[in-house]
Structure formats: structure tokens, C-alpha cells
């Protein structure tokens, strides 16, 4: 049985629901943040994810980061050597989707590895009448940039665990691949 550890950066514009998703996922859906409280530094939450059909698990250190630019200098220093990346936007907020390119560039610049498992999360799908970003458009953007796309509604407890499980799985596969490489070198 092996235990991996991964630093998972959670980033995106402010008030798209990053902290809510992190809290929901780490509490198995029992803790929904009803009131908004701005994240000003990096909040680290550890959550263990089991890899199905193996005895292995991954400790995800979720680095919930502030979306407001005023805190970025301080927080982005702590993004060094990320293991995986969860990029969140709000499907009712076009600007938060447009910012994704910027967030992706910032986080990718912090890694010295060729691969960085990453997911794009369109949150707040419960507000369907106010939807401003088309699902297909978001999906295309994600594929073009090498991310897996998920839609979630933290409020309705929908799919909130899927993006993180996907990241854990990708990270695990990357480890297995790397170990095979290490074996082939001898």
C-alpha cells in the first residue's frame, strides 16, 4: 500500500465558490459555507482520497487561494512546485471564465515538471436562468488547454467531489508511469 501526497492549488476569480467547494469536499458534503467570507491568505486543507481498486491513497493538500489580485503577490509565492491544479469559475459570470487563461498561465509557470494534472470547474450550475457561459464553450476551452471539465453546484451538492477525485486519479497514474520509467532506466 502506498500513500502519495500532492499539493493541489485551487484558484480562480473571487467569489466563484473555491472555498465552498474545498469545504464541501473535505467534509464529505456536510459543511456548506452559507455566508461569504473572503479568503485573504492560503487556507490549506488536507483530504485523503482512496484510489478505487487499489490499496493506495493520496493526501491532497488543497491550497485554497484568494481570488482578489491584491493578495496575489503574497499567496503565489506559496504555489511553488504544485502537484495538481483545480481552476474554478462561476458559470453565471463571464469575466470569471475569461480570467481562466491568466490563472492557468500563473500556476503552470510554477512547475518544473512537464505534466501538471488540472481540472476546470464551472460552479453554480443551480443558477441556470442566470447562466452566462455555455457548457460547450467551457468544455472546448478545457480540452484545448489540456484540462478535464466538470460542472458543479456546491449549493445543490452536485458533483463537488468529482474534480478532486479526477485530479487524484491523474496524479496517481502519473506516479505509476514515473515508477515504470525509473524501473526501465536500470
Amino acid at each position: 500500500m502506498g500513500k502519495l501526497t500532492a499539493k493541489c492549488i485551487v484558484a480562480g476569480d473571487s467569489s466563484v465558490g473555491k472555498s465552498t467547494l474545498v469545504q464541501l469536499f473535505s467534509s464529505n458534503g456536510s459543511h456548506f459555507l452559507k455566508n461569504y467570507s473572503m479568503t485573504t491568505g492560503i487556507d490549506v486543507v488536507m483530504k485523503t482520497v482512496q484510489i478505487p481498486d487499489t490499496g493506495d491513497s493520496i493526501e491532497l493538500f488543497l491550497c485554497d487561494s484568494p481570488g482578489k489580485a491584491v493578495f496575489s503577490d503574497m499567496t503565489e509565492m506559496q504555489w511553488d512546485q504544485p502537484g495538481c491544479f483545480c481552476l474554478v469559475f462561476d458559470v453565471t459570470n463571464e469575466a470569471s471564465f475569461s480570467s481562466c487563461t491568466k490563472w492557468l498561465q500563473k500556476v503552470r509557470s510554477k512547475t518544473s515538471s512537464a505534466q501538471l494534472p488540472a481540472v476546470l470547474v464551472g460552479n453554480k450550475t443551480d443558477l441556470s436562468d442566470r447562466r452566462a457561459v455555455d457548457k460547450l464553450e467551457a468544455q472546448e476551452w478545457a480540452v484545448r488547454h489540456g484540462l478535464v471539465y466538470f460542472e458543479t453546484s456546491a449549493k445543490d451538492l452536485e458533483n463537488y467531489e468529482l474534480p478532486f477525485q479526477s485530479l487524484a486519479k491523474s496524479f496517481y497514474h502519473m506516479y505509476q508511469e514515473r515508477v515504470e520509467n525509473f524501473k526501465s532506466l536500470v
Binding site: G2, K3, L4, T5, A6, K7, I58, F61, Q81, G83, F171, Y175, R178, V179, F182, V186
Partner: peptide, 12 residues
């Protein structure tokens, strides 16, 4: 044994 190794399992 030159064929065996230790791996790190994530983060530095």
C-alpha cells in the same frame, strides 16, 4: 542492488 530504488511520493 543497482536495480532497486527509493521513490518519493509527492511534494518537496
Amino acid at each position: 542492488n543497482p536495480e532497486t530504488f527509493w521513490t518519493t511520493t509527492g511534494m518537496f
